[in-house]
Design a protein around this nucleic acid. Structure first.
Lengths: 104, 104
DNA sequence: TCTTTATATCGTATTATTCGAATATAACGA
DNA sequence: TCGTTATATTCGAATAATACGATATAAAGA
């Protein structure tokens, strides 16, 4: 009995990766993530200003990214900085947009 | 004026990639796609048998993958074979699961 | 033409996402 | 403590995704 290419017995092994992709599968969130690849670290106001969308909307997207483990946060006074936290995400974004020089 | 890391002016450049990720962001569809990386070509009945879910459910997932350009089809008599059609998808799946020897 | 097999589509109930205003919290300075 | 700034959470309405039975189509063979 060989291992089939598809197997319902390990369908649940796809749950976590599918969740990660779902977290990335929104234009605003994808934009945020690629921005974080360029900028390494960024607070909410800056993103909000660049993207020009309501604060609660940005914040909700960030919470979704955080819930999926895509980003972590570092508070610095009033500001909260967001930072990429999962190396798979960078590989995925590179697959989509191509590699890019990063800020020195 | 420098180019910001985030920019609402090209937010729409994220629509297509986000759509691609959305198509992949379901456990069943991800399983199908990884199966197609191993098996290269596969008909619906085989997938259905492996995954043990209703035929209409599989078919709908396949249509969603096809709509996003993830797969194409080749009819052979009664059967329809599905084949991966977007190289970005393989890079993404490799980022998630690691590379793997493919069937010779 | 009739049947069978393989796949696709439709109808629809259920659940999940999304957005943005309103409100809450957390940290800082006066 | 009070006010201000930065961020998070809550709420509700609109929209989209999902599952699956029922039904339709497409190809092949008798």
């Amino acid at each position: 009995m060989t291992i089939p290419a598809f197997d319902k017995n390990d369908l649940n092994q796809f749950d976590e990766p599918a969740n990660l992709l779902k977290a990335l599968s929104h234009p605003i969130r994808l934009c945020i993530v690629r921005g974080l690849m360029r900028k390494k670290k960024c607070n909410v106001s800056y993103m909000q200003e660049c993207l020009d969308i309501p604060q609660s909307t940005i914040s909700q997207h960030l919470q979704k990214l955080r819930g999926a483990g895509v980003v972590t946060t570092e508070r610095k006074g009033l500001e909260v900085n967001y930072i990429l936290a999962d190396p798979r995400v960078e590989a995925i974004v590179n697959a989509l947009f191509g590699e890019e020089e990063c800020e020195a």
